[in-house]
Amino acid sequence: MTDYMRPGVMTDPGELSGRLDGLPADVAGVGRVVQGLLIHEFLGDLYGVTLTDAQKETVHLRKVSDMLAGIVALDGRPLDQARTPDRRLVTNCRGFTVLAVTLLRRAGVAARARCGFGTYFGDGMRGDHWVAEFHDGQRWRLFDAQIDSVFGDAIKADFDVTDIARDVFIVAGDGWRRCRDGQDDPQRYGLTGVGQGWWWIAGNMVRDAAALDNVEMLPWDCWGAMPERDREPDDWEFFDRLAAGRVDTANDDRVRVPDKVWNALRERDEAVR
């Protein structure tokens, strides 16, 4: 539990850690802060702004310290003062998640990032997605820090975003087991118009395992045992064991994050540490 109460390589706020002092310590308050600082790269129109390609480059920021530097460069006011949408840092669901995890840990709450699939985007898919998971003193709860009133209304969210059911957000390993048991269709896992299938579920399992080891990678970072696009896994038994939590992820090179990973969007190797 203590591993999820202190900063990791991606969630360390670095030199701007003092900016986090005095921010809300409750989960809903953390959500409001995060939502006032960030905007999703694909949802600018929903908030009345047009995002440029240059602005969208910040989706590749892996470390919260770099995200905070970008936020402050856009608007130097205290972080609990919501920015107008045009002054928010452009990111994605993973960015919302790691910033929320950082703030929760700063407030003394055990928290971690989870990679999986959301069922609530209205297209019938289990859409590629990240959420935070925090411990309320009794159990782990899923928390989608991206869903504010604007986005919530758009997707008709009818659930508590601070306590999402595990069949509403499906952690990657749970999705794998559901499909292997014949309870779900792997072709429903991915992103409409981009891709779907076993390769996507397996890739997100590796990303989720890394996140549980406190190394929260970008949604398009690729390494280790991840299958290539549109290809089924080479080792089904390995992913069965990974889904069951029977892999030493911190020491297995098929899962452990190396010093360099392949950024599939930029089509290049990039240093992680």
Rank of each mutant, 00 (worst) to 15 (best):
G152E: 05
G152A: 03
G152V: 01
D153R: 14
D153Q: 14
D153L: 13
A154W: 14
A154V: 02
I155W: 14
I155Q: 00
I155C: 04
K156W: 00
D158F: 06
F159A: 10
F159I: 11
F159S: 06
D160K: 02
D160T: 03
V161T: 15
V161S: 09
T162Y: 03
D163K: 07
I164F: 05
A165H: 14
D167W: 05
D167F: 07
D167P: 07
D167A: 04
D167C: 04
D167T: 12
V168R: 10
F169N: 12
F169P: 10
I170D: 03
V171N: 07
D174K: 13
W176T: 09
R177H: 04
R178G: 00
R178N: 11
C179L: 01
R180I: 08
D181L: 14
G182M: 10
Q183W: 00
D184V: 01
D184S: 09
D184A: 15
D184N: 02
D184C: 00
D185C: 06
Q187G: 11
R188N: 02
G190I: 06
L191V: 15
L191E: 11
T192Y: 13
V194Q: 04
V194H: 05
G195S: 09
Q196M: 12
Q196I: 00
W200Y: 12
I201N: 08
A202V: 01
A202P: 04
A202S: 06
A202R: 00
G203Y: 03
G203Q: 04
N204G: 03
M205H: 05
V206W: 06
V206C: 11
R207G: 09
A209L: 05
A210S: 09
A211K: 03
A211D: 04
L212H: 13
L212Q: 12
L212E: 11
D213C: 13
D213I: 02
N214T: 04
E216P: 01
E216S: 12
E216T: 15
M217T: 13
M217Y: 09
M217K: 09
L218A: 13
L218V: 03
P219W: 02
P219K: 00
D221K: 02
D221N: 10
D221I: 06
D221C: 14
W223H: 05
W223C: 08
W223S: 12
A225I: 07
A225F: 10
E228R: 11
D230K: 04
R231Y: 08
E232C: 05
E232S: 14
P233E: 00
P233N: 00
D234W: 02
W236M: 12
E237K: 02
E237M: 04
R241F: 10
L242P: 04
L242R: 04
L242E: 03
A243F: 04
A243H: 08
A243M: 03
A244G: 05
A244Y: 00
A244Q: 10
G245N: 12
G245F: 01
G245Y: 10
R246A: 15
R246L: 15
T249R: 15
T249C: 15
A250R: 14
A250V: 11
N251E: 13
N251Y: 02
